[in-house]
Design a binder for these strands. Structure first.
Length: 277
DNA sequence: CCGTTCCTGGAT
DNA sequence: ATCCAGGAACGG
């Protein structure tokens, strides 16, 4: 489940591997992995292109191409973008292989087939709805404390956990880092945004940025599927304080961590450190 | 806002 | 055999 820190880690490991490389051949093994344009057009337009410096927006990886196009990748749950040697016996979940001019390859593997690649002209990139709808980047200057306080006031009747997962409020948080940020800020995931005090909101603002920065520094969180572009797992799972720790002691107070379904997603929290009222 | 859908494989 | 994991689009 790649969230912002995982996608950012892939961006960083991929950058020296593909920047300046030319696409020699595109091999589609699962057409459903291509979100746009139609597969034959995707292949013909991508072939011969030169990769620029990878970028990221929320959980989207943006791979700019020299000729005014961008290859967008969303990994969703189990997607992997891997750089390596051409494989004569590709694994079962290989969806796409991009052969590069140095004899190496870029693979897109995805067990659950939720991930998608999109090839867009640079002109249509800013107006592309999924990107346009995204809220601010949590680690950039566009995510200000004032924006956050105003948002919690404006969305006062929303519960805070689903609000954190709403990519139009903030781009890049998923279930793992949302639970971790709430625990560090001492806020119950079911709390209504309007009941959060300004002090708590400020603490949450800081904890969101902190857990994302720590996640990036650790190379992301790996339970089973996530890998960077070199195939390496991330190290942040060992540092999680509540996520996937149901019934284990809270690392702050020792009380067992609870798990509850909120808005269709599992939420992990400490009932002592994060009181409901 | 909420529930459903898309997917597959691992757990029960 | 059934349930569950969850990012995001979609319908209500």
């Amino acid at each position: 489940m790649p969230e912002l820190p995982e996608v950012e880690t892939i961006r960083r490991t991929l950058s020296p591997q593909i920047t300046g490389r030319t696409v020699h051949r595109v091999e589609i093994r699962d057409a459903s992995a291509i979100g746009h344009p139609p597969v034959d057009e995707f292949v013909s337009r991508l072939t011969g292109q030169v990769f620029g410096e990878p970028d990221r927006r929320g959980k989207y990886l943006l791979l700019p191409l020299a000729e005014e196009m961008t290859l967008l990748v969303h990994l969703r749950m189990t997607g992997r973008l891997l750089y390596g040697e051409a494989d004569p016996a590709p694994p079962k979940h290989r969806r796409l292989t991009i052969h590069l001019d140095n004899g190496r390859t870029l693979f897109f593997d995805d067990q659950r087939r939720f991930g998608r690649l999109y090839l867009l002209k640079s002109g249509e990139l800013p107006g592309w709805p999924p990107l346009q709808k995204l809220g601010p980047e949590p680690l950039s200057g566009s995510f200000t404390e004032q924006y956050w306080l105003d948002l919690l006031t404006k969305r006062g009747r929303c519960r805070i956990k689903p609000l954190l997962l709403d990519q139009s409020c903030l781009a890049g948080l998923g279930n793992i880092y949302a639970d971790e940020a709430l625990h560090r800020a001492g806020i119950h995931p079911a709390a209504c945004a309007g009941t959060i005090t300004p002090e708590q909101a400020a603490a949450l603002y800081r904890s969101i940025r902190q857990v994302l920065q720590e996640g990036i520094a650790a190379g992301g969180t790996t339970f089973r599927d996530y890998r960077d572009s070199q195939g390496q797992p991330g190290g942040y799972a060992a540092r999680l304080r509540v996520y996937r720790r149901e019934n284990l002691p809270c690392l702050a107070c020792g009380h067992p961590v609870q798990r509850r379904r909120i808005a269709g997603r599992s939420a992990h929290f400490c009932p002592v450190c994060q009181p409901e009222k």
